[in-house]
Simulated scan of single mutants.
Amino acid sequence: MSTDTPASAGEPDAAQTITLTLAVDEEWWVARDEETGVSSQGRTRKAALDNLDEAVAGYHGEGREPTDEELRDLGIDPASNESGSVEDSEIFE
C-alpha cells in the first residue's frame, strides 16, 4: 500500500506524497500521487490506495498487455481491440 516511506527495489526512488480525500458523495475515496498527478479511487481508503499503487506503477511503465482471454472475460473482442496513433485520434486534438 502507498506510504510516505522510501521506495524499495523496483519502485520509484523517492518517497510518495499522497492526498487522500473523501468525495462529496461520501461513497468514494480519491487518492492522488502529488509527484505524478496520477489519481485513483476506491470505496474504502485501502482500496483507493491499492488502486493508486497500481495506477502509479502503470504510469512508470510497469504492467503487461492483457491476454485475449482476459479481454474476452471483460467483454472485449480481441480482434477489435486496436490502438491507433494519438495523432489520429479526435479525442487528443
Results as ranks from 00 to 15, higher is better:
1 M>S: 14
2 S>M: 15
4 D>K: 09
4 D>S: 07
5 T>C: 08
6 P>L: 10
7 A>C: 10
8 S>A: 12
9 A>I: 13
10 G>T: 10
11 E>Q: 13
13 D>Q: 03
13 D>C: 07
14 A>Q: 09
14 A>S: 02
14 A>V: 03
15 A>Y: 02
16 Q>T: 00
17 T>F: 09
19 T>H: 10
20 L>E: 05
21 T>E: 15
21 T>K: 14
22 L>M: 14
23 A>E: 15
24 V>C: 09
24 V>F: 07
24 V>Y: 10
25 D>E: 06
25 D>L: 00
26 E>A: 13
26 E>N: 04
26 E>H: 10
27 E>S: 07
28 W>A: 01
28 W>F: 07
29 W>C: 08
31 A>L: 08
31 A>Q: 05
33 D>I: 00
33 D>A: 08
34 E>K: 15
35 E>Q: 13
37 G>C: 13
37 G>M: 11
38 V>L: 05
38 V>S: 01
39 S>G: 03
40 S>Y: 00
40 S>N: 11
41 Q>W: 05
43 R>L: 11
44 T>D: 01
45 R>K: 15
46 K>L: 12
46 K>C: 02
48 A>L: 06
49 L>W: 08
51 N>E: 15
51 N>M: 12
53 D>S: 15
54 E>Q: 14
54 E>I: 12
56 V>P: 12
56 V>C: 11
56 V>K: 09
57 A>R: 12
58 G>V: 04
58 G>H: 09
58 G>K: 09
60 H>L: 13
61 G>S: 05
61 G>I: 03
61 G>M: 08
63 G>I: 02
63 G>H: 05
64 R>A: 11
65 E>N: 02
66 P>Y: 10
66 P>T: 04
68 D>L: 03
68 D>V: 00
69 E>P: 02
72 R>I: 15
72 R>T: 14
74 L>T: 00
74 L>Y: 10
74 L>D: 07
75 G>L: 08
78 P>F: 07
78 P>W: 03
80 S>M: 03
81 N>S: 11
82 E>Y: 06
83 S>Q: 09
83 S>T: 11
83 S>K: 14
85 S>L: 14
86 V>N: 04
86 V>G: 01
88 D>S: 13
88 D>F: 06
89 S>Q: 06
91 I>P: 00
91 I>S: 02
93 E>V: 08
